[in-house]
């Protein structure tokens, strides 16, 4: 039987989706490693889903110190030799997974979108060139443990995996593992400025907007729609919009009814910040832009032509 070990990151709301990956390998033994300074809730959450839970409880894990976590977890991995080690490709996941791979020498696969069993082989897909191509790899499952990070939103938490309540094992944190990262401050970079997290309508702008003055066309549409302006990362990096408007894995998570994108290519780092099931309208000049894979309705064309037209029509509705 295959052995899958899920590394559950404390702040990861998508970690249950990793069970969707494990499901592909059913029947399999599911182990879950949990981290924190108090594991009560986490333990309860995972108990129905796992065969075994490995608890790493330590004050240093109050803020998820991936360096510390990797160093306490790696020896366990070398002992357990699971077939697959899974974690979400969140920001902490981007830190944790490769370090585990580096310490253990197990190969790593980053940002998995899909896994399938085909002609006797395990095949995994990932995106390259910002979603322009999908690249498949054959995973040497069974030959060596594989460290894999999974893109949030790519798998669904299975309706049911039949597991009896998991065994819980509190792992001892070795003394020779002093913390190497000192947390000084937690900064909420999106705390200043407009809070778009509760907005029901958002007009999101991306790299199709080439300079600051061009923002006006989108601002004007947002106003007509009574919507707030949201942004992808590059425009925020340029200083054209406040950080609080940045949607995505490095920005805020939004949950609107309408998400209208203007010149947004649709990288997962951006789209990953959209929760719920908003109606997504995409305007982009590139018919191959990944945003059309997420959108409900798409328009391929020049945003400077389409957006003002749309604004006029909306104003006519007298909303």
């Amino acid at each position: 039987m295959k052995k899958v070990l899920i590394v559950a990151q404390p702040e990861d709301s998508c970690s249950m989706e990793l069970l969707g990956v494990a499901e592909v390998f059913q029947p399999c033994l599911i182990q879950v490693a949990i981290f924190g300074d108090d594991l009560k809730l986490s333990k309860e959450k995972w108990t129905p889903w796992a065969d075994r839970i490995l608890g790493f409880e330590h004050p240093q894990l109050q803020w998820f110190d991936t360096d510390f976590a990797a160093r306490v977890l790696a020896p366990v991995l070398l002992e357990e030799m699971p077939d697959l080690i899974l974690t979400s490709r969140t920001n902490p996941g981007l830190e944790l997974l490769p370090v585990l791979s580096g310490i253990t020498g197990f190969p790593a696969f980053s940002d998995c979108l899909r896994v399938r069993f085909e002609d006797g082989d395990w095949i995994a897909d990932k995106a390259e060139f910002e979603g322009k191509v999908i690249h498949s790899f054959r995973l040497p499952v069974g030959e060596v443990p594989i460290c894999m990070s999974v893109r949030p939103g790519s798998f669904q938490t299975p309706a049911a995996i039949q597991k009896k309540a998991a065994d819980y094992q509190l792992m001892s944190v070795p003394d020779h593992c002093p913390p190497r990262r000192e947390f000084l401050e937690l900064l909420d970079s999106s705390a200043e400025g407009v809070d778009i997290r509760k907005s029901k309508r958002l007009v999101a702008v991306g790299r199709g907007i080439e300079d600051q003055e061009q923002l006006e066309v989108a601002e004007s549409l947002a106003k007509a729609l009574n919507a707030e302006l949201a942004s992808t990362r590059p425009l925020v990096d340029q200083g054209w919009l406040e950080k609080s408007r940045q949607v995505g894995t490095s920005g805020v998570t939004v949950n609107p009814d309408l998400y209208l994108t203007v010149g947004v290519s649709g990288s997962f780092q951006h789209m990953g910040g959209i929760q719920g099931k908003p109606f997504i309208v995409a305007i982009n000049r590139d018919p191959k832009a990944p945003v059309f894979n997420y959108a409900n309705v798409g328009m391929v064309g020049d945003l400077f032509e389409l957006v003002p037209l749309l604004e006029q029509e909306i104003l006519k509705l007298g909303e």
Binding site: V133, I134, F137, I280, A282, N293, Y294, V297, G298, L309
Partner: peptide, 30 residues
């Protein structure tokens, strides 16, 4: 890991791409 092939993702897998003149597209999106 064994490098297999690359392919383009199915374009517009979920989006309905509106057709027609810009004005017609706008009417449809509304």
């Amino acid at each position: 890991l064994v490098d297999l092939k690359r392919r383009f993702p199915p374009s517009g897998a979920h989006a309905e791409i509106l057709q027609g003149s810009p004005q017609e597209q706008i009417s449809q999106v509304i």
